[in-house]
Amino acid sequence: MERGVVADFFFRISDSDLWYSFWHTPIAVGSAALSLILIVGAGFAPFIAPFNPFDLATLDLLDSNLPPTWQVGGDPRYWLGTDDQGRDILSAVLYGSRISLLVGFASVALSLVVGVGLGLVSGYMGGRVDAIIMRIADVQLSFPAILIALLVDGVVRNIMPKEVHEELALYVIIFAIAISGWVQYARTVRSSVMAEKVKEYVQAGQVIGLGAWAIMWRHILPNILGPVFVIATLHLALAIITEATLSFLGVGLPPTTPSLGTLIRIGNEYLFSGEWWITIFPGAALVLIALSVNLFGDWLRDAINPKLL
């Protein structure tokens, strides 16, 4: 019966319904494994990639626009071919995935912190605070996320000189995507909090005399994390797609730090002349990432709360 704290923790996880459902859903296991492989692969891009696509010294224009190895004219050194600069597509995709995932995780983390915080306060305090936060959310919801991100990005672009902007583009885009995504967390958390705060365990805390922060932080928050995780997972896929979209539209990351979206944008110009690999491989990587994360998120949603969208 007696177990150590750590052993107890793992026992609780392995005994939970969620864990059981996970191992008995092949799609969940598969998508989690795939996500993990992609994330690790992208994270260790500098160690895995055959070339460093940013090292101009290794680029050779003679190697430009080479098709994948298995096609006529392919070069065994470049498995997935090269682009117009002679960059190895495989390496570019690995490095690009790293940037895409970095933007995705960072913007999700930022929206989550802001959204959960505001949602908690809004739901628990109610009254005027709630009204103000929710009106802001309403105004923001009058615009789709992608438009907000475009706008934030566009404005920053106008305020800053071009050189400074290129340097800060990564942070700007993280901020832009994060700002466009907090509302969903805030609304979900708020409605969960409103459902939780009339429950008797919260009233018990009030009877003890606990302050609002203690009740929100220690009692309510741990009880509403399930839906937050679901949203965060699905939001990760969406954030990666949004970043790719912005970069594709030319308002995201510059070619000096190319994400998958930037690579697709560059390749798109060569699509009509038949060099499909420059676009398709980064596109496939993007879809693979989004698909595996979405599959996992889908399972998580069905397991935790199928009503979330």
Binding site: T245, F248, L271, W276, T279, G283, L286, A290, L291, D298
Partner: peptide
């Protein structure tokens, strides 16, 4: 539906162009 949420709109466009246009 999963493909729908995982494929970015612009990529769908590019693929359609590639297949039906090019």
């Amino acid at each position: 539906s999963l493909m729908g949420v995982s494929l970015p709109t612009f990529l769908i466009g590019i693929l359609l162009i590639l297949i039906f246009g090019v």
